[in-house]
Write a protein that binds this DNA or RNA. Structure first.
Length: 377
RNA sequence: UGUCCCAUUGUGUAAUGGCAGCACAGCAGAUUUUGGUUCUGUUAGUCUAGGUUCGAAUCCUGGUGGGACAA
């Protein structure tokens, strides 16, 4: 705690000066990250993505989402003040073809996607590395609250020191190549410390900026309306169907399975005297099964699209703590590698295991790896 | 057609002559770089027309609607 913000991370960084491509969102985190790198003597170039055209969707809400056109100008202005080169990279087409199309496709298959995970891997780091190579930058940097560890020739993520802001859950898909070139200047800092740095540098307004939130390409936060507007033949997919109980009996009518997600309680419009939650979605049958909080619990799942970090392979029965959604407590789990996937058995039952969401495995602060949850083979 | 029973917020239920309450649903806010969860706040009701009473969801009479038994 007595470490100054600067020495807190300098020991793990390569000796400056080195060239760094820093992703600037216009928010406080990436801006402070850039400030810290500058003070360390790095040679910076900034880049801001234009991922989605919010203006064309009639939404000009201020300071909403990391990717609004508004924050784009904010980022450019910041970089000008800090005094290094800045590029705007228009990747709307790639973003639409990867992140958004996957988002829609997952919902139409009855799963619940996590677009941030894909975006980090495909867009943020994918494009960052590409651009760093083009510009001849050795490193890339972002304002995430995460750290990087190294062991036996492998790179892995470590949780940010500020556990309440830890963002490793969204970064499990990063490759060894990604990690080997990444700097996280904020990994050793807490959010209040970051705000103070911004304040001390004279950026009072920035220091009080609210957190970005919601899905960045859905500014009004209504993903159901977004699906209806963007998904091809949505009416074909989204038809009223049966709410079932866990015994398979009809207990009501739903508004189309893509409108629901596992664990959902609000918006069911069904009153049974006790809270009911979505416990299963069957896209093929167009049924949505409801159950009590107790019936929401589960003890195992599979993880696919595995990305390993700390170790090259997972020993049979390895004990880890697993996180099945952001801001959830980790749960002790045992891993059993199978062909192309991992079977995950939880020590105790956990709530609402949701197909499509990420599961991330930890060993203390270290990220062992992660995958996408599926329940049935 | 005869007899009996029932009717309270969107739903299910408490209150037996004395401030209509609870759960679920709904709505709003807080939290949150995904969806959801969670927390806090909140809207809304005595089927209808009369009568008894200081006072009626509650007792009496008619009506309406639903159910059961009888045929």
């Amino acid at each position: 705690m007595n470490d100054s913000p600067h020495t807190a991370f300098s020991s793990s960084l390569p000796p400056p000066p080195a060239t760094v491509l820093v992703a600037m969102s216009g928010g406080i985190d990436s801006t402070v990250a850039a400030m810290l790198l500058l003070e360390q003597g790095y040679d910076l170039t900034g880049v801001t993505y234009r991922v989605f055209d919010n203006i064309s969707r009639g939404c000009m809400e201020k300071e909403k989402g990391c990717c609004s056109v508004d924050s784009l100008f904010e980022a450019k202005r910041m970089v000008e003040e800090l005094g290094f080169a800045h590029h705007i990279l228009d990747i709307r087409q790639e973003f639409k073809n990867s992140v958004i199309s996957n988002f829609i496709d997952e919902y139409l298959h009855g799963r619940t996607p996590n677009p941030c995970v894909l975006c980090n891997s495909y867009i943020k780091w994918g494009k960052l590395v590409e651009m760093a190579d083009t510009l001849g930058c050795r490193y890339i940097a972002t304002g995430h609250y995460a750290r990087i560890g190294r062991q036996d020739g492998r790179y892995f993520l470590k949780k940010g020191v500020d556990e309440s802001k830890d963002q490793t859950y969204f970064l499990w898909m990063l490759t060894q190549e990604n990690l080997s070139r990444t700097l996280f200047p904020l990994g050793g800092l807490t959010k209040p410390e970051v705000r103070k740095i911004a304040f001390d540098h004279g950026y009072e307004k920035l220091s009080k900026k609210t957190e970005s939130q919601e899905i960045c390409f859905i500014p009004d936060n209504d993903y159901r309306a977004f699906l209806a507007a963007q998904a091809k033949d949505f009416e074909e997919w989204c038809r009223p169907g049966c709410f079932l109980n866990t015994a398979g009996e009809k207990i009501g009518e739903h508004q189309g399975f893509p409108n629901y997600t596992i664990g959902q309680r609000k918006g069911l419009g069904i009153a049974l005297g006790v809270p009911m939650y979505v416990v299963a979605i069957n896209a093929r049958e167009n049924t949505v099964t409801l159950g009590t909080k107790e019936e929401l619990k589960g003890k195992m799942c599979y993880a696919e699209q595995i990305n390993l970090m700390k170790y090259a392979s997972i020993p049979e029965g390895m004990t880890v703590t697993a996180k099945i959604r952001y801001r959830n407590e980790e749960a002790t789990a045992f891993l059993f590698p199978e062909a192309g996937r991992i079977r995950v058995v939880f020590e105790r039952e956990v709530n609402s295991i949701t197909p499509g969401q990420s599961i991330v495995f930890y060993e203390g602060d270290d990220v062992v790896g992660g995958g996408i949850i599926i329940l049935e083979l």
